Amino acid sequence: MNQGTANQMFAPFRMAVVLAAFLMPASLSAQCAGQNLLDAMPSDAFAALEAGSETHPYATGNRFVATKGESTIHFVGTLHVYDARMKEPLERLRAVIALSDAVYVEATEAEQAQLKSEIAKRPDLIFATEGATLPERLGQADWTLLSGELAARGMPAVLASKLRPWYATAVLGVPPCAIKELGGQANGLDKLIMDAAAEARVPVHALEPYDAAIRVFTDMDDADQLDILRSSLPLLGEAENVYETLIESYFAEKNRLFWEYTRERSVAESPDDPETAAADFARMENALLIRRNYSWIDPILKAAEGREIIVAVGAAHLSGINGILALVEEQGYRIDRESF
């Protein structure tokens, strides 16, 4: 399976942020200086991309409320890395949090701690304990590039050489400038909402098991993981630009636009034919987003019966025919966009 160079840089980014936050051996702090790649597009190409993205249900917006009878679900699209602009949305959410019966997120601090504990007990999940190392499998040129990039992200070469390919790819999805002083967990709007819920004594629950994030990658066989890692290397120079594009798209509440841009770039820059590249992107999208969306619906609906709850998950999960908003709407809920 060859996912294509751009696919590997763009598609795993949100998941990579979470995994790197959980598992990086050191914390870094720097200021990103990337450029918004959407601003560099020719005006006609951007207009076509934007029009196409708007054909997807709930293409814009970071906050919605779903109502059905006595059941109310507040949906908040989050970003898993901190930005000071999150303070204002958080303040608007505090009153809603305080009046809610429960908050549901992808992973609570308990799941994050369990994941770290599992990694500590089973280092074989991210480190290959036998067989050829990454330098031996990649070759000198690719290894020199990879080891330098991992070192910039706090990963010494002696550890990097033994990484499983999937984790090396995940770490590469986060530019060094985006790795904050995280304290071992994602420090974005999810964390701020969890902290506010704790202050209001509102219970917080996870929508999925602690290991769901890593299973997205570990379910791939080792050869596929290596192909993905190798194909991610050529676009490393764009990492800060991808990050900046993601951040700006999020605060513009145009998350579907960013996702469709990643799809377009993936297909256009893949060494494979367009049909194969599109199928590869769809496979990654299914693993990262769609499959998880469907697994969350029953727990969300059950939790909301006769109650008022908040569901705060990565913003990419909201839009599309397979997004959680459309899936909830199919169950008879009315969906209204709220001010973010």
Score class of each variant (00 low, 15 high):
residue 1 M to K: 00
residue 2 N to V: 03
residue 5 T to A: 05
residue 5 T to E: 04
residue 7 N to C: 14
residue 8 Q to D: 15
residue 11 A to K: 07
residue 12 P to Q: 14
residue 15 M to P: 00
residue 27 S to P: 06
residue 43 S to H: 06
residue 46 F to T: 05
residue 51 A to L: 08
residue 52 G to K: 12
residue 62 N to Y: 07
residue 63 R to C: 12
residue 63 R to S: 11
residue 67 T to K: 15
residue 81 V to Q: 12
residue 82 Y to I: 00
residue 82 Y to K: 06
residue 96 V to R: 14
residue 106 E to Q: 07
residue 108 T to E: 00
residue 110 A to L: 08
residue 112 Q to M: 06
residue 113 A to V: 08
residue 118 E to S: 08
residue 133 T to Q: 04
residue 135 P to Q: 08
residue 136 E to Q: 15
residue 139 G to R: 11
residue 144 T to Y: 03
residue 153 R to Y: 14
residue 154 G to E: 08
residue 155 M to Q: 15
residue 162 K to W: 06
residue 164 R to W: 10
residue 172 L to I: 14
residue 172 L to S: 12
residue 175 P to W: 10
residue 176 P to L: 07
residue 180 K to Q: 08
residue 181 E to M: 02
residue 181 E to N: 13
residue 186 A to D: 10
residue 195 D to M: 03
residue 200 A to C: 04
residue 209 P to S: 15
residue 218 T to F: 06
residue 220 M to V: 05
residue 221 D to V: 06
residue 224 D to F: 05
residue 233 L to H: 12
residue 233 L to N: 11
residue 237 G to Y: 12
residue 239 A to Y: 02
residue 239 A to P: 00
residue 240 E to H: 03
residue 244 E to K: 13
residue 244 E to H: 09
residue 245 T to F: 04
residue 246 L to K: 05
residue 247 I to A: 02
residue 250 Y to E: 01
residue 252 A to I: 09
residue 267 V to Y: 02
residue 268 A to V: 02
residue 270 S to W: 10
residue 279 A to P: 07
residue 279 A to E: 13
residue 279 A to H: 10
residue 287 A to W: 02
residue 290 I to D: 01
residue 293 N to V: 01
residue 294 Y to W: 06
residue 298 D to R: 03
residue 302 K to W: 04
residue 310 I to F: 06
residue 311 V to R: 03
residue 314 G to T: 04
residue 316 A to Y: 07
residue 320 G to C: 02
residue 331 Q to H: 14
residue 334 R to P: 00
residue 340 F to Q: 04
